[in-house]
Amino acid sequence: MLTIAKGANAALMFFLELGVLASVGYWGFTLAAGWPVKLLAGIGGPALFIAAWALFGAGGGANATFPLTGLARAALEILWFGGGALALYASGLVTWAGVFYGLFVLNAVLRLIWKQV
């Protein structure tokens, strides 16, 4: 049973990662600005997040160009997932922002307990 729970937690991490990209893209396209700015933010925002994750966090650091560990990895995750929650909040989806960040905290705690980090 624990193996299934650990697998579900790993899947949650993956879906949270995708959720960050969707949240940032949604935020960009909901800005009260002209279409050029919306396109830049809606496509450029997720592109910047993808670049940061690829450089520092991909595959738990194993596939990253510059893998982070320890407190640096924790800071990256807090900024990454916090950025997704802030994007939802800035888009006016306050409840969803709280749910998103709560799921991240739950996921992170379980990864620490189960040594999935």
Rank of each mutant, 00 (worst) to 15 (best):
G61D: 11
P36W: 11
L12H: 03
W114H: 06
G44T: 00
I43C: 14
A75Y: 01
V24I: 09
M13P: 03
G102D: 04
N63W: 07
M13A: 15
A11C: 06
A10V: 08
G45Y: 00
A10I: 12
G82Q: 06
P67F: 14
A108W: 13
G102A: 04
Y26V: 09
I43M: 15
L76T: 07
G60T: 07
L39S: 11
A72D: 00
T30W: 02
G42A: 14
L76F: 15
A62M: 05
L16Y: 13
I78S: 10
L18Y: 14
Y101V: 11
L55K: 12
L106I: 01
G83C: 10
W96R: 12
G84N: 12
I43Y: 11
F104P: 02
W80V: 05
W35F: 15
A47L: 15
T69P: 03
G19L: 09
A51W: 13
I113E: 00
Q116W: 02
W80N: 10
Q116L: 10
A97S: 12
A87N: 01
F49Q: 08
N107G: 00
F81T: 01
A85N: 07
R73H: 06
T69R: 14
G84C: 13
W35Y: 15
R73E: 13
A51L: 15
K6G: 01
F29L: 14
L55C: 07
W27L: 11
I78L: 15
F56R: 03
W96H: 14
A58D: 13
F81W: 09
G61A: 12
K115D: 13
A32K: 15
L18H: 14
F49S: 07
L106T: 01
P36T: 08
M1D: 13
A64W: 08
L103A: 09
G45V: 00
A75R: 07
A90E: 05
G98S: 11
A90D: 05
M13R: 10
Q116P: 04
K115R: 12
N107D: 05
A97Y: 01
P36I: 12
I50D: 06
T30G: 03
V37G: 12
P46A: 02
T69D: 11
Y89T: 02
P46L: 02
V37N: 08
K115P: 06
A87R: 00
T30V: 02
M13Y: 10
G45M: 01
V24Q: 08
A11F: 12
R73N: 07
G7D: 02
L79Y: 04
V99T: 12
N63L: 13
A11Y: 04
A22M: 14
V37D: 10
Q116S: 03
G84R: 12
A22P: 08
A64Q: 05
L2E: 09
G57Y: 01
G57T: 02
I78Q: 13
L16E: 14
A52K: 05
L76W: 04
L112K: 14
L106N: 00
A41E: 01
L93V: 08
